[in-house]
Design a protein around this nucleic acid. Sequence first.
RNA 1: GGGCGAGUGGUGGAAUGGCAUACACGAUGGACUUAAAAUCCAUUGAUCGCAAGGUCGUGAGGGUUCGACUCCCUCCUCGCCCACCA
Length: 834
Amino acid sequence: MTQEFYPFKEIETKWHKRWEEMGLFKMDQNSSKKKYYCLMMFPYPSAALHVGHGRNYIIGDSVTRYKIMRGYNVLSPMGFDAFGLPAENAAIKNKIHPEISTLNNIKTMRRQFDSWGAGYDWDREVVSCLPEYYKWTQWIFLQLYKKGLAYKKKASVNWCPSCQTVLANEQVIDGECERCSSQVILRDLEQWFFKITEYSQRLLDDLGLLRDWPEHVKLMQKNWIGRSEGVEIDFKVKDSNITLICFTTRVDTIYGVTYMVISNEHPAISELIKDEPNKKEIEKFIGETRKENAADRVGADIEKKGISTGRFVINPMNGKAVPLWIGNYVVTEYGTGAVMAVPGHDQRDFEFAKKYGLAIEVVIDNPKEHLDAGNMKEAYIEEGIMVNSEKFNGLPSLGAIEKIADFMEENRIGKREVHYKLRDWLISRQRYWGAPIPMIYCDKCGMQPVDEKDLPVLLPKDVLFKLHGESPLKDAPEFVNTKCPKCGGNARREIDTMDTFVDSSWYFLRYLSPKDDKRPFDKELVNKWLPIDQYIGGVEHAILHLLYSRFIIKVLYDMGYIGFKEPFAKLFTQGMITKNGIKMSKSKGNVISSDDLIKKYGADTVRLYTLFISPPEKDAEWSDRGVEGAWRFLNRVWRLVKQKFGSSSIDPLSNHLSTSLEAEKPEEDVRLKSLRQKTHSTIKKVTEDMEGAFHFNTAISSIMELVNKIYDSTNDELLATSDELKEAIQTVVILLAPFVPHIAEEMWEKLGNKESVFKAEWPCYNKDALMQDTVELPVQINGKLRSKIEAPSNAGEDEIKKLVLEDPVINKWIGGKPPKKIIIVKGKLINLVI
RNA sequence: GGGCGAGUGGUGGAAUGGCAUACACGAUGGACUUAAAAUCCAUUGAUCGCAAGGUCGUGAGGGUUCGACUCCCUCCUCGCCCACCA
């Protein structure tokens, strides 16, 4: 046996060059082939990539190459989500300008993509931190501003007092700053928002169009949008002309209201308590609980607290006056910030009522077990029968919801409303490394948008990176000082920059015309190429990035700039790669460097193992041993090709597989048939896996089976020289090409082919070739496997039944008695019921 | 607290009503070798048996079915997302 390992270094260098020369990944604008837009989420440029990152690009590249082989005109571009906090933080710490470190990282990443063999149309590269790109991000902002979808208001934001900066939600871990672990507080600041809430219903409805998205991702978006139907009810405040509106999904519990709670930030508070003797105490309570809101926001479990306002509100259904409280458990931003409290039928109200000795009443009785308000351990939140509810008594509570809502609307004490959990998208950041928001403040004319022809608003390079709670742009006078676009007088620029999610919400449009300096995107091309046929990325973007992109696309659609409503037709979310059960990260010290591995085993081994490790949508644990297995397999295939064809000149097989069925040989050997059958069932399996759920792991294992079969066959004289064997080897090479492109190309060449394997036609399986002369049928008795029989594959049911009943082993089992029933399943399995 | 997903050999996993454990890793034995590595061959769920073969076995318990890893109900464990949303 030869000791030679396949020379991956040579092969990789050779074919990278060849692919470059032949423009394998260049999309052909004039091609008549069917288009296929395959897109990987563009990455944030970070220095060292590990095998976990690699998985994303290896999956995407395998799909791209497969589609090229299937004859599509494939667009597979790549770019970089290059603005963002890490680069700016590094600038403060290491005194490197974010632009320098970012562009350096991009260079490293391009090299790494190359080393994986991941091919892209690099002429279309998009880098979001370059003015050629962010000019158009600013343009998008202006379109939203024009449409009234971008607005400024005061909002509470996460603030780290020690770093002196605003933090993104993702940077707040359990109420603490991710970097310095100090307690995050909320601060009220003027912020820019996009009015995504105006699109809540459409974002929800159009999830129905996304038939090729994973169900769980759609569900996450649905829950995030959080639609709920209910009724807004007017409660008059006693002895005043104030009316408080509260929202409820459970109007059936209206007669059980024993108090009302409003949020500690409710706008009516100052008016409500202005004459209250307790005013000082209430204000103190509000101050204290507002501080806690920050911790509350990040999910900490906070004790319910409240204070009475001394006021009463009137229940419009029965005229009863109930006390009005301020509580820390009412979410200001949701509904109306006021809640009708029904302690009998809401667990939160129940806990609050118990704590403060407020009344508990039962208005919905449990049909199984009579409820007693004095003895309840928890609220009864299920459906039931209405009691203590005047004319609605005796109705089932579910039906009563509609009846009471009708009644309220007729009597104008309430109206049906739909509320959403979705909040407007806060897009401004008090940070340097982002696209400047193109707005100008003039003392005379007020707030003015930058004229489109003056874009881009360039980010100044020479800025002092210091933390003082406001955008570093504030200290760049040449940036701040400008002229008013309306009156020409002195004015100031907006110093906040945009959230990087704005950059990434439209980049996939730019790939079609990345160098166009007249328009953000080419309408005609974009309409031709989108929606994206396959989008691939991490599930961590299941909500934010995907929702924001869907929103921006809908806005552009409404403005007539594009002709499609959803950007991503098909979505695939891959799992992470773990080591020792946890996500790879530098700080955990469990990173497997992909550079080192590629140096040792070559790119194809790393690719094969990464794809083989588990189904790609699942998390997978990395194993160094497993990599060796992949390496061994590739060498096994390599030797096979070299031994058979590598020596000197051989007869190249035709490009099309010799299904060799036309000439029905009368006495064909079963061994030949069996080998051909295996070849074709492998083609079938791999093709189905690639067209369906991307189960690369089972596709690869079926190729391994075929390789094992070929090895067995080489010991058989008849098979060793047969066309069937050549066909099998050729099939292995071509089926492996999307997964391990370099070695596949080299072997394809060794098989005598002049052209790249990616110009070859993907094999078709032949149904006749899948058939065998005889089949082995398992025989069950009462569902338990007992024996097997041989039967001709074209045997009818009666013939099979006869064979079964004549079989001596089966007769032994059934003791000669005829079975009650014989079930033959799809001609593949027999079950005798006795 | 709510929602979703998962639980199969020593390990990663395969099978979505029909032969449980494909494929691979690891392990054991053998061939080759002065030796090692590499390679090739064999065995590898548990258990009883000299063997033929039997019995048990997919987190636990129940159900539907001729037949259940797969469908239904109850429970346990783990993972992810959301989290005081009225």
